[in-house]
Simulated assay, not measured.
Amino acid sequence: MNRKKYRYPSVLTIAGFDGSGGAGIQGDIKTISALGCYATSALTALPIQNTQGVRTIYPIPYQAVNEQIETILDDIFPDAIKIGMVHTAELVSTILDALARYPHVPVVFDPVMVATSGDKLIEDKTIAAIVERLFPIAAVVTPNMDEAAILAEMPVRTLDDMRLAGAKIRQLGCRSVLLKGGHLDAPRLTSLYFDEAGDVHEFSFDRFETNNTHGSGCTLSSAIACFIAQGRNLLEAVGAGQEYVHQAILHSRDVQVGHGNGPLNHFFNPLELKKYDLV
């Protein structure tokens, strides 16, 4: 008698390295694992960083990036893809070429341009390539306020600024935009989700004091990809992803890891790997 076989919902993260463990591929793998999905990865860059900031960034050969992605796609096909650090126009082309055969896999793109520490992580000439080529394949793009200011070419300091900037970014060609409000100077932090129909949805959480937000953007985009991989629609995935990040920060707020912006507690409520029938 043959035993019934199953599969795990799989999420591929295409992102940079973080030796301090809170952001980048390390943060993504923690998030994906904590939410009951199976994590695969392709490394795009080797930043030298800790909780206090980025010291330098070493490139990964483009051919190596291409081969990493193709090798994973040939064997462990993902239910969703998260794309993080893409710091050159050539890397944009490399990723697009590798994904070209798989246009129907949902992509969550976190346009990593500015680190939590304030360090700029992207070359100026790369922005046009990202907008022109990566935005059209993304189900949702997740800029923070600093990144939204770059993309919308305007100051983004208030909720009204966010509304205007989010609408501008959505017009650049992506299906939907989650503009994260973690840098708002307000007692409640509000993020805005601009959906495929052009409707705007607000998600608000009470502010609390903590330095442990390193990797929050990476974690959020990976969480959204996980919930998409598990079959939720975009609005549900965005809402569930934000609740997960809020709780992960809340459960880490009194812990000290390093001397700068510490990591989230990704495993505050870890889930077992989900099993789906193998079709």
Rank of each mutant, 00 (worst) to 15 (best):
N144E: 14
P111F: 07
A225N: 09
A23F: 06
P61F: 09
L189H: 03
I81A: 01
F208P: 02
Q26V: 12
M162I: 11
P47G: 13
L159I: 13
L91I: 12
N233I: 08
S176N: 06
A223F: 05
T13V: 01
I48F: 05
I83E: 12
G118F: 11
S191Y: 01
L178K: 07
G24K: 00
G215R: 00
T219W: 03
E123S: 10
G36D: 13
P270Y: 02
I130L: 15
I14W: 06
F205H: 15
G118A: 13
K125P: 04
S117Y: 02
L278C: 10
F267V: 00
G22K: 11
C218M: 07
D124E: 14
V156E: 06
M162D: 10
I76S: 09
T13Y: 01
L184G: 05
G217A: 09
Q242R: 14
Y244I: 12
V177F: 11
G24S: 04
Y62Q: 15
N265A: 02
M162L: 10
V112Y: 05
L99Q: 01
G239N: 13
M145F: 08
M162C: 08
V200F: 02
R188F: 03
P78F: 05
M85R: 08
V11F: 04
D110G: 04
L73G: 07
T94K: 05
M113N: 02
L192V: 12
I83N: 09
M85W: 06
N233Q: 08
Q68W: 09
Y58E: 15
A197W: 04
A139H: 15
G118Y: 09
V112H: 05
